[in-house]
Simulated assay, not measured.
Amino acid sequence: MASVQLSELVDFNQKSLLISAASIAFNPTFWNIVARQEYHNKVLTRLFGGKSQTACYFLAATIFSLGIVRDLLYERALRHQPIHPLLDTDEVTYFGYGLLALGNLLVISSTWQLGITGTFLGDYFGILMDDIVTGFPFNVTDAPMYYGSTMSFLGSALVYSRPAGILITGWVLFVYLIALRYENPFTAGIYAKRDAERAAGVKKDSKKKQ
């Protein structure tokens, strides 16, 4: 019975739904693989003649472009899905717009705090931040871009009144949580190595002065 009800809410025969889900999974997989290759082998930095910042900006532009494509594919998928009357109300629509606004606030404010290189994996290029950012939105969540993006997906689903969008939002959250399990420890290791090197350097200088 449950599967019959789900099939009435979501049209799984629409290829646009599967393409959207694949795009959502592809993006973080792509940037994690590329960023780790950069960290270990300096692939992009070598491609840009040893200019790590230029290489990072290139990756940032690529990730941003892929994000636009992902969002367009998601919108296309929603248009091909059935509307549910319980979602097709003014209250749900307003709530959806509220989620979109809040989600974009988290994404934009985190980008403002981190800058381009801080947002788009600059630490994998050796472009490290001096200190941990603790102001808004990082005092609300440790992954504002991921959670903000998830909120925007859900907001769009409610604005379009499509249950399929809620299902895809669950997929978005799952993919991002998996990505965080790989990204957070790796990034923490990069900064731990930097801090250890700094401490060793201070200790060495201290010995020289003695």
Score class of each variant (00 low, 15 high):
residue 1 M to R: 04
residue 12 F to M: 00
residue 12 F to V: 09
residue 13 N to M: 04
residue 14 Q to A: 15
residue 15 K to A: 11
residue 16 S to W: 08
residue 16 S to H: 11
residue 18 L to I: 10
residue 19 I to H: 03
residue 19 I to M: 12
residue 19 I to K: 08
residue 20 S to R: 01
residue 21 A to P: 01
residue 26 F to Y: 15
residue 26 F to E: 02
residue 29 T to Y: 01
residue 30 F to G: 08
residue 30 F to E: 10
residue 31 W to I: 13
residue 31 W to H: 09
residue 33 I to D: 15
residue 33 I to P: 07
residue 34 V to E: 04
residue 36 R to E: 12
residue 37 Q to F: 14
residue 38 E to I: 00
residue 38 E to L: 00
residue 41 N to D: 08
residue 44 L to W: 02
residue 45 T to Y: 00
residue 45 T to W: 00
residue 48 F to W: 07
residue 49 G to S: 05
residue 49 G to F: 03
residue 51 K to A: 11
residue 52 S to D: 06
residue 56 C to E: 14
residue 58 F to S: 04
residue 64 F to A: 13
residue 64 F to T: 04
residue 67 G to V: 01
residue 70 R to I: 04
residue 72 L to E: 05
residue 74 Y to I: 01
residue 74 Y to G: 03
residue 76 R to C: 03
residue 76 R to N: 12
residue 77 A to D: 01
residue 81 Q to L: 06
residue 83 I to K: 11
residue 84 H to Y: 05
residue 86 L to V: 09
residue 87 L to A: 02
residue 88 D to A: 11
residue 91 E to L: 12
residue 93 T to N: 09
residue 96 G to P: 09
residue 99 L to G: 05
residue 99 L to S: 04
residue 101 A to S: 11
residue 106 L to S: 11
residue 107 V to C: 13
residue 110 S to A: 14
residue 111 T to W: 09
residue 115 G to Y: 00
residue 115 G to V: 06
residue 116 I to L: 14
residue 117 T to F: 09
residue 117 T to V: 13
residue 117 T to A: 14
residue 120 F to A: 13
residue 120 F to I: 09
residue 122 G to P: 03
residue 122 G to Y: 06
residue 123 D to N: 14
residue 124 Y to D: 00
residue 124 Y to C: 00
residue 129 M to Q: 15
residue 131 D to L: 03
residue 132 I to Y: 08
residue 132 I to K: 15
residue 132 I to Q: 14
residue 134 T to E: 14
residue 138 F to N: 05
residue 139 N to W: 09
residue 142 D to G: 14
residue 144 P to F: 03
residue 145 M to S: 14
residue 147 Y to C: 14
residue 149 S to E: 12
residue 150 T to C: 14
residue 152 S to N: 12
residue 154 L to W: 15
residue 155 G to M: 01
residue 155 G to R: 04
residue 157 A to H: 11
residue 157 A to L: 09
residue 158 L to Q: 05
residue 158 L to D: 14
residue 159 V to R: 08
residue 159 V to C: 11
residue 160 Y to H: 13
residue 161 S to E: 03
residue 161 S to A: 15
residue 162 R to G: 06
residue 164 A to S: 10
residue 164 A to G: 02
residue 165 G to V: 04
residue 165 G to M: 10
residue 168 I to R: 13
residue 169 T to V: 07
residue 170 G to F: 03
residue 171 W to Q: 00
residue 171 W to C: 02
residue 172 V to F: 06
residue 173 L to T: 12
residue 174 F to M: 15
residue 175 V to N: 05
residue 175 V to W: 06
residue 176 Y to L: 10
residue 177 L to P: 02
residue 180 L to T: 01
residue 182 Y to G: 00
residue 182 Y to E: 01
residue 182 Y to V: 05
residue 182 Y to Q: 08
residue 183 E to P: 01
residue 185 P to H: 01
residue 188 A to G: 02
residue 189 G to I: 06
residue 191 Y to D: 02
residue 191 Y to K: 05
residue 193 K to I: 11
residue 194 R to D: 04
residue 194 R to A: 15
residue 196 A to K: 10
residue 206 S to R: 13
residue 206 S to D: 13
residue 208 K to V: 06
residue 209 K to P: 07
residue 209 K to D: 10
residue 210 Q to H: 12
